[in-house]
Design a protein around this nucleic acid. Structure first.
Lengths: 219, 219
DNA sequence: AATTATTTTTAGGTAAATCTAAAAATAATT
DNA sequence: AATTATTTTTAGATTTACCTAAAAATAATT
């Protein structure tokens, strides 16, 4: 069975909002997809007949096994293409998301497998997110939220919590990217801001919001 | 201005049927696109308002300057992706068309330019068709470098890149001259040597330097 | 518990791209 | 030139994905 780009985008959005388990509401989906609740209801009925999800009126929605499988296949393509764009074509890691949103809908299975092999079966994309393998399995991220990093523990930035251009702009300005080495020097409980020190640089403070948007791995 | 995949496919089909000059009929287009004449008429009206073509009722269509520009951009993407699939991902040259039909609609201009650079600005795709450059110019085919000849395409030696006695000595020894019929059986990326087969003879390999000094025309 | 607020669904409509069937224009043939 | 055949266009429907506005269900608050 094959699915339209729109259908695939719904499945992907539900997968992201579901995160592990739980149920997703119509309004949440409408917001995520920049559409209206009425449109979402229509599409959920349709996707239900295609057995990609379970849906009861007013009860929210969750992906079926089939739905999860499809979602993982799309995520796999998205992240492999991001890896390709950065690693092979020398894109900046902050400019690949939009392009990958288009490339993830290319249907050829053989293409995905050959691309994966060419890239050397990478396990994480340029934002630090794990790439599902051809069976849908992905590596567990030993990433912790920067806000939870203990003071004076050296760590390396390994992922970002969102792809918003606003966040990427701020990170660029602060010279923070995937792979940046840093440690926390102080935590201020007044506003939950933290003072961090990048390797070979002076310390500066960042907001709680920014810290929560960054993931690091201990070294 | 941006165009739907369907619109792009119409423009591409008209471009192919037009071939150089001339006008394209509604029925020809319907056949090419596996659709019905009535649908074609509708779309032609629409594309006319977008100034991609000139169209008068019952008189057929031809692309405008803008239309040709768009067609060349799509052809460029199609052929670059085909080259990528064969050259980088090791697809067979006979299995890339369908995939390229999807990839040619990816919109990012930056992606196309970076892909072109990564591939080394190839001039011909794996089928021997010329790849338009970023300005829409493409090489004229009847005199291509042997190094750019696709595998298994019969060709005839039509020129040499130098008149040095060293080259001519080598050519004499290999029994290669103007008018010699040959085709490439394999390309070896290790040293860019190629295995060629002369008509009615066994195959043998020649160096990159020699291949670059020979021009052939497709037959 | 009753009322108010929010969320979700239904009902009815629009735009894009397609279709079939019938009408109009052009081309071919006697 | 008149008739027949072919091509092309119009007219009216269908499907997908979306919308607005109103109704129905659920949740929150007094």
């Amino acid at each position: 069975m094959s699915f339209s780009i729109t259908e695939e985008n719904y499945i992907k959005a539900i997968f992201h909002l579901q995160q592990g388990e739980g149920t997703v509401s119509t309004n949440e989906l409408a917001a995520e997809l920049h559409t209206k609740a009425a449109s979402v209801t229509d599409m959920l009925k349709k996707l239900k007949t295609k057995k990609l999800l379970s849906y009861e009126k007013y009860k929210g929605v969750r992906l079926s096994g089939e739905g999860k499988k499809l979602a993982l296949a799309i995520v796999r393509k998205h992240r492999l293409w991001e890896y390709f764009l950065v690693d092979t074509l020398q894109f900046g890691w902050d400019e690949v998301h939009e392009v990958a949103e288009e490339l993830e809908h290319i249907s050829s299975k053989k293409l995905v497998e050959k691309l994966d092999a060419f890239l050397g079966y990478p396990k994480f994309d340029p934002h630090g997110d794990p790439i599902p393998d051809s069976h849908g399995k992905m590596a567990v991220q030993q990433h912790i939220n920067l806000i939870d990093l203990p003071v004076n523990k050296p760590a390396e930035v390994s992922g970002v919590g969102s792809q918003s251009t606003e966040l990427l702009e701020l990170l660029k300005h602060k010279h923070i990217g995937i792979g940046t080495r840093l440690e926390i020097k102080r935590k201020f409980s007044f506003d939950n801001s933290i003072e961090i020190k990048l390797k070979n640089q002076n310390a500066f403070t960042i907001s709680q919001q920014l810290a929560q948007a960054l993931f690091v791995k201990l070294m």
